[in-house]
Structure formats: C-alpha cells, structure tokens
Amino acid sequence: MRRGKNYKNATQKVDKHKLYDSQEALNLVKELASAKFDETIEVHVKLSVDPRHADQQVRGTVSLPHGTGKTRKVLVFAKGEKAKEAEQAGADYVGGEELAEKIQGGWFDFDVAVATPDMMAVVGKLGKILGPRGLMPNPKAGTVTFEIERTINELKAGRIEFRVDKTAIIHAPIGRVSFEVDKLQDNLYAFADALIKAKPPAAKGQYMRSVTICSTMGPGVKVNPLVIMAAKR
C-alpha cells in the first residue's frame, strides 16, 4: 500500500520500539492526525485466543461513557406496539418484510439492526447478507430483544459491539480526534473492562498480547497492554 507524505512524516514521530502509556499514546495519535475531517480513533487488540475454536470466541458490547462521536442509524425489525415503541425511541427505520426486501435488493443505509424475537423468521432469511457485514441482529450482542426503547437509547448514546476476527484481533472505535484525551481514555478503559470480562476460560497466557491505537488516517501507536489491564477505572 502506498502511503502519503503526511503519513510518512507522522510515522517518523512514533518510536516503534516503545510501549507508550495510554495518555501519552492518545496525545500522540491526536497530534499526528492530519486529515481534513474529524478522524475516528480506533483501538486494535491482539488476543491470546484461537478463534477457530468455539470455546475461544470473544464477543460483547460496551456502552462508551462519552460515545463514539458518530450518530448511528438504527434499523428495527418489529411490529405492533414494539414498532410504535421503536419509532418513539428514535429508530431511523422500522418495519418488517418491506425492509427485508429492500435489504435483499442491496440497500444498507443503516449502521446497526435490531429485531424483536418474534421477527426472527423474517430476519433469519437475511443472514447471508447481513452476517458478512456485521449487521445481523444477535442475542449475544443484545440486538435481538423486546427491550426496544432501552436498546435504541444505548445504541444512539454510544454502545458498540466488538468481536474477535479470524486473526485473533479485536477492532473498536473509542471516539474522535476532536475528543479530549481524558474522554478518550475513559472510553478506552471502558472498552478494556468489557474485553476482560469477555475473556473465555480457554484463553491461555497473557490475554492482551498487544494494543495499538491509531486515527483513521494515522500510524499506529503501541500501548503497554499490562498497563491497560491493570489501570484503575
């Protein structure tokens, strides 16, 4: 991949052999962000799990105390009173079969999908379409539920879902470059707490092998994983 001049200049300011503490890393990531838009700040964590085994899957949700800085479009599959509840709670799209047909036709103008359990007969048909995009409602992620109002409020406020990928890495947004460092650190620790709580019993050795923070267009800055795991929240 070819990198631009700004990226190369920013990379030179990062000590590749150093494990930064979280505050120092966040300050550096903010300093090196050079895009003309408000970049997302992301955390990438390498875990000591083997995702090929069912007992080493890592998945969960966390409500970031300061949100992600992004307004999420929420789609809800519901009917009757639950559909009304979704509309009143501020869902961007509410429906059933008609929404499923739009999605089957290639429409994906939403960031997260929620469904009531009685709508899964409709939603289940979309598994091969929504699954690969990470948009399939799932009970483990709290997106298959009758608690529609609470779920929508949490999603709009900054609740995110995380899931280990095939390379044993978790990727998550923790805010924007415009956020104050203290707020980014609060979000980082909230995410780390949720990740630790999701640790499978089968995981061996040091759970978090590496932690890297970066902005959308900026270079990665390595953080000491032991400091993250031991930090007081």
Rank of each mutant, 00 (worst) to 15 (best):
Met120Asn: 09
Thr116Ser: 14
Val123Met: 08
Leu75Thr: 02
Phe108Thr: 07
Val45Glu: 00
Gly96Tyr: 06
Gln104Lys: 15
Lys30Thr: 11
Trp107Ile: 10
Lys5Val: 15
Phe77Lys: 03
Ala157His: 01
Pro173Cys: 08
Lys166His: 12
Val227Phe: 08
Ile148Phe: 05
Lys36Leu: 14
Leu75Gly: 01
Leu195Cys: 07
Met217Ser: 12
Asp118Leu: 10
Glu180Tyr: 10
Ile213His: 00
His53Trp: 14
Ala194Arg: 05
Gly69Glu: 00
Asn6Tyr: 09
Leu226Thr: 12
Pro219Lys: 06
Ala202Pro: 09
Pro51Val: 07
Phe110Trp: 09
Thr61Pro: 03
Gln88Ser: 13
Asp15Trp: 11
Ala121Asn: 11
Met217Gln: 10
Gly124Ser: 13
Leu32Asn: 02
Asn187Val: 09
Arg3Gly: 06
Arg72Trp: 14
Ile196Lys: 14
Lys166Phe: 07
Val211Phe: 05
Asp92Val: 11
Val58Tyr: 04
Leu155Glu: 00
Thr167Arg: 11
Arg159Ile: 00
Pro117Ile: 09
Val144Ile: 13
Phe179His: 04
Val94Ser: 03
Val114Glu: 01
His17Arg: 13
Ala192Asp: 04
Ser22Ile: 09
Phe191Gln: 02
Asp38Met: 07
Lys197Val: 12
Met136Trp: 06
Glu39Trp: 09
Leu195Asn: 03
Arg133Tyr: 09
Lys222His: 13
Asp38Pro: 07
Leu64Phe: 10
Leu26Gly: 02
Ala83Cys: 11
Gly67Tyr: 04
Arg163Asp: 07
Gly158Asn: 03
Lys128Tyr: 13
Asn27Asp: 12
Ala100Asn: 06
Tyr7Cys: 10
Glu161Val: 14
Glu180Val: 14
Gly69Cys: 07
Lys140Ile: 09
Phe110Glu: 04
Thr71Pro: 01
Ile152Tyr: 00
Asn9Pro: 01
Thr143Pro: 02
Lys8Met: 15
Gly127Ala: 15
Arg72Tyr: 14
Asp109His: 12
Val43Cys: 05
Ala35Gln: 12
Gly127Val: 13
Asn187Phe: 06
Asn27Gln: 15
Thr212Gly: 04
Ala203Gly: 08
Leu32Arg: 03
Lys73Phe: 06
Gln12Thr: 15
Lys70Gly: 00
Ala35Arg: 15
Leu155Pro: 00
Leu130Gln: 08
Thr151Lys: 05
Gln104Asp: 09
Gly67Ala: 10
Phe191Pro: 01
Pro65Phe: 02
Glu97Phe: 14
Phe146Tyr: 14
Ile174Gly: 03
Thr143Gln: 01
Leu75Ala: 07
Phe146Asn: 14
Glu149Cys: 02
Gly131Gln: 12
Gln88Asp: 13
Tyr93Leu: 15
Gly218His: 04
Pro65Lys: 05
Leu64Val: 12
Asp165Glu: 13
